[in-house]
Design a protein around this nucleic acid. Structure first.
Lengths: 174, 174
DNA sequence: CCTTGCTAGTTCAATGATCGAACCGTAGCC
DNA sequence: GGCTACGGTTCGATCATTGAACTAGCAAGG
C-alpha cells in the first residue's frame, strides 16, 4: 500500500493498524498463536511469497510483536515467537475470528477453556468459570466433519486439538 | 494489494480480513461508530483519496457492513450507516483501540458506559455493572489535555463527549 | 574434502493497488 | 441562467505484491 502508515490520524487504532494492518500480517500473528514458529512453516501454511513473509516477520520483530531467536534444535535457523505485546493481540484475533464465523462463513474450529473444557463465548470468556482466559489457556480443536482444504504440515498438525502458543510439531520426531 | 483475498485459508479470520482487512477500511468503520455518515465527512476526517473511499464504501455496502440510504435532510445525497453486522464489529474495533493505546501510543480518548459513566476495561466491559455494553451504550470523550492535531469538522465535533453511533453534527444547524 | 539437500532468505521483472489532482453530473439557491 | 456544494469518476505516476529464480549457511553422507 502506498504509504503504509496513517500519520494524520491521532488515534490508537491507526497506530495499531500501522503494525498489524498490512496484508498477511494478522494471519501471521494468528499462526503464531497456533504455535507456528519457523519461516518455512509460515510459508507453507499461508502460501505467502517469501519476500513478503520476510518483510512482515521483520516488521513484527521491529515492532516488538514477535521475537526472533536461534532455533534450539537446529532444524531451521531461527524461530519466531510472540512477545508479551504480541500475546496481547489475542482479543483482536479472537474478535475477528468470531465476527468472521458469525457473518462470513461458519468456523470449523472451536476454542475451549483448557481448565474446564467449556467453549468460549463471543467475547472470549468462559461461561463456566466466569473468567476470560489468556491465549495460553485456550485449546483449539476442529469440529467434527469440518472440511479440511489444506494439507500442508501445519494444517495437518492442527487437526488434532492443540493448546495455543504451544509449538506445533510439523516434523517427524527424530 | 495483489489479490485482496485469502482464498487458500480455510479460516474465519481470513474471511473477516477479506471484508475489513484492506487499507483504510477499519478506519472507515471506526468513523462510522463515531457517527460519521457522509462521504465528504469521511474524506475530510481520513484524508483518504476519494477514489479509494468510494471503493471501500462500496465494498462495505456490498458486504453488508454499511447501508447506503438517501440523506433525509438533503445536505448530501446519501448517508452510510452501520448495519447490525457492522455494529458487531465493535469488539474488533475496541480491541484494536485498546492494544494500540497500550503498546503504541496512549490514547487521548476514553470510552465510558453511558448508563453509569464508568470507563470500560480492556475487554470492553463495565466493571461497575458487570456488563459488556454494545457500542450504542458507549460514550466517547477526550481526556483533558489531549493533543488535537486535526481540525476538520469531524475532529472538531468529536471534541465534545459523544455517544457512539449517534450522527455527528458537522454542519452548522440551519 | 566434496557433494547433496535443507532452511532461510534476497533479487528481479511483471502486475496490481494506491495516490493526488483534475474532471464530471446533479441538486439547490440566487 | 449562473453559481456553488456535494458526491463521486477518471487518469497518469508511484508504490506494493507476486512468483520464480537465485544465493547463502549449515549438516550429513560418502
Amino acid at each position: 500500500m502506498l504509504g503504509k502508515d496513517y500519520e494524520g490520524q491521532d488515534c490508537s487504532l491507526a497506530r495499531a493498524l500501522e503494525t498489524i494492518g498490512e496484508r498477511w500480517t494478522l494471519l501471521i500473528v494468528r499462526d503464531a498463536f497456533y504455535g507456528v514458529r519457523r519461516f518455512s512453516d509460515f510459508q507453507a501454511h499461508l502460501d505467502v511469497p517469501k519476500a513478503v513473509l520476510s518483510d512482515r516477520l521483520g516488521g513484527l520483530v521491529d515492532d516488538g510483536v514477535l521475537e526472533r531467536r536461534p532455533d534450539p534444535d537446529r532444524g531451521g535457523r531461527h524461530v519466531y515467537e510472540l512477545t508479551a505485546a504480541g500475546r496481547d493481540l489475542w482479543p483482536v484475533v479472537y474478535a475477528m475470528l468470531t465476527w468472521g464465523a458469525r457473518h462470513r462463513s461458519p468456523s470449523g474450529r472451536v476454542f475451549r477453556h483448557a481448565a474446564c473444557g467449556t467453549a468460549l463465548d463471543a467475547r472470549g470468556a468462559c461461561g463456566a468459570c466466569g473468567t476470560t482466559p489468556p491465549a495460553a489457556d485456550v485449546v483449539m480443536s476442529l469440529r467434527r466433519g469440518a472440511r479440511t482444504l489444506r494439507d500442508d504440515p501445519v494444517a495437518v498438525a492442527l487437526r488434532a486439538p492443540h493448546r495455543l502458543l504451544e509449538p506445533v510439531a510439523t516434523r517427524p520426531p527424530a
